[in-house]
Nucleic acid binder design. Structure first.
Lengths: 339, 339
DNA sequence: CAACTTTTGGCAAACGCTTGCCGCTTTGGT
DNA sequence: ACCAAAGCGGCAAGCGTTTGCCAAAAGTTG
């Protein structure tokens, strides 16, 4: 019975209740709880006991109002649906929880505008922001970073601390892997045009391929979803390439399906290399050779960098850039070039 | 340059600034912005203009303090990593955003204790809670529901409004599917012991199997992760069953891998039916026959029910239970029983 | 035109907490 | 034993909103 109807009866205890029970002033309670060392041990213990017996939980609202800090940070991702971001979400969530912060998760729907808007709307709500694969321009990032603490993931910018995933490094590995298998006509299957990391991957691909004297092609842009895989596969097949390096695993998995439908065998007729090593890359058919990276760790590092920015203690030691290592995980989707 | 170092200069405008600029009292600004109709139109427009020109964003903290509402709801999931919850997260996120609410995502790590703890700690932080696959006891839910707005997903309880996914209905479909394929020895592969929906599925399985005169077995409990699939597959194989209905797709996919390793062909030697139709179920090898449900929609419905609870306007019409339909999606992991 | 009712805007009191400042006790040094 | 310093707790002023109450202005009615 005691549900919605009966609710809203007893108001939760406030700091005042605790103070009264402990026989001290509210200021003492506040300090005892959030600044131990500022009060005598016996006092603190008395306060703690009172708080515990009342089941007291400080109001983060009130705390935020008066202290100016919210103890929350916002994580902006382009698409909560994309498994790539799930590892980031998990990583940040873990680290934030450990630091006593709350995570505010926002899906910006791949839109720069929405991202900027969120940044503005939440300026008071969050102490800082982690921008995953931001679609913002350098200027926008600069502006945002000028008023709030920001860390970007996979979107390098001189204007804010960044966690990079060293995909370029792994693109080289992938290329080496493919050439050693005898491939010489390789296609890069591109992701969203607005994606910074897509541009980066493509460029590395171009440069490195040229150096190796490979015949390259490029198709795209494609939305990074499995559903775009069909179009991507068709386009890639048309280029005559015997191997593809694909913007991300989602797209690659979609391609795998389409290629099977079309009777193009992977890896016999065409080799596919994905990127990110997301959930599913290991059990799709065939299992995907992919550029793996410690995504979850990237999330954790981002949090650390952000927290360092917030905490004056660490102000000096703030790193501006962290690069996460990557490596090629070879599975079944790559094989010798067709002779 | 204008980053961390130079930050913290200009404080964001407050309601006072807006009031001053518009030449009215702060109370009028407050009303103009959040209760239009309470002020004259020309006044409102003046205020709106002032607010816009200052780029004013109300402090949710202060608003929460004085109004008692936070405009945030918390979503508690046992494991953010589990793709099943991806869809719930997405569904709630969408619906909440549409209603102007912020989502607080919390991973309770499959722990009832952590769940209860979060509920307590966030009582002031969130206006309501959505408990996905709650591990709480009925009594705990009752207690929580008595002080805060709560909706559960896949955890029926008389003590709080619930969104159910009608898996039992689909278990029947799965059983029918399997028997029509000639299977008579079927094994239920169980999920976490503390999972309510696991218990429900198992019971339906038992009842329906008995009615059909099938030879059943049961293995488990298993952690619902792909990594537990190996153990589950081995256990299931030992029972001599020719088909398995598996607690969820994660586990089922893990089993698929293990069975392949062991040379047990799916579906020739053994048929597998999963549950949830998560991301990946369609492209694993073989594609998984599974009990599909509109999970994202379940998330949306949960939000609606919660918001109805919060908004006194809808107080009367609050539904206590919503049941989401399910259906069997047949793919490659089920086939005729071995003869 | 008087007597009302509505509409509209302002005043000021919360909301629950933090924190600068002050002053009383202890403590320690000489 | 005296004084400075350190330790500790209280006072009270905010933090940025919302909202109950009131009064002035405007509109309505007979």
């Amino acid at each position: 019975m005691a549900d919605a109807k009966a609710r809203a009866t007893a108001a939760p205890p406030t700091i005042r209740d605790v103070a009264e029970l402990a026989g001290v002033a509210t200021s003492t309670v506040s300090r005892a709880l959030s600044n131990p060392g500022r009060v005598n041990r016996v006092t603190r213990e008395r306060v703690e006991q009172a708080a515990a017996s009342l089941n007291y939980v400080p109001s983060s609202q009130a705390r935020g109002l008066s202290s100016g800090r919210t103890n929350a940070i916002a994580l902006l991702v382009p698409d909560v649906t994309n498994p790539f971001y799930f590892d980031i979400i998990r990583g940040t969530q873990n680290q934030l929880k450990a630091a006593g912060y709350t995570q505010l998760l926002v899906d910006t729907e791949e839109s720069a505008e929405m991202e900027a808007d969120t940044l503005r709307k939440m300026q008071r709500t969050a102490d800082g922001f982690i921008l995953a694969a931001s679609r913002l321009t350098d200027a926008q990032i600069l502006e945002a970073a000028s008023t709030q603490a920001i860390v970007t993931i996979n979107r390098s910018s001189a204007n804010a601390p960044t966690v990079m995933i060293d995909t370029p490094g792994a693109v080289v590995q992938a290329l080496e892997h493919l050439t050693s298998l005898g491939h010489s006509k390789i296609c890069y299957v591109g992701g969203p045009a607005s994606s910074w990391s897509n541009a980066k991957r493509w460029k590395t691909f171009e440069d490195e391929s040229r150096e190796r004297g490979l015949i390259t092609s490029h198709v795209g842009p494609f939305t990074p979803k499995t559903t775009s895989g069909a179009a991507a596969a068709d386009a890639a097949a048309r280029t005559g390439a015997t191997a593809c390096i694909v913007f991300n695993d989602l797209l690659a998995i979609g391609m795998l399906q389409r290629l099977r439908e079309r009777g193009i065998r992977v890896p016999e007729d065409m080799s596919i290399v994905g990127c990110d090593d997301i959930f599913g890359a290991d059990f799709c058919n065939p299992p995907l050779t992919t550029i793996a990276s410690p995504i979850e760790q990237a999330g954790r590092v981002a949090v650390s960098m952000l927290l360092a920015q917030l905490d004056p203690l660490h102000a000096g030691s703030t790193r501006r850039l962290a690069v996460m290592p990557t490596h090629l995980t070879v599975r079944g989707s790559t094989g010798p070039a067709p002779s």
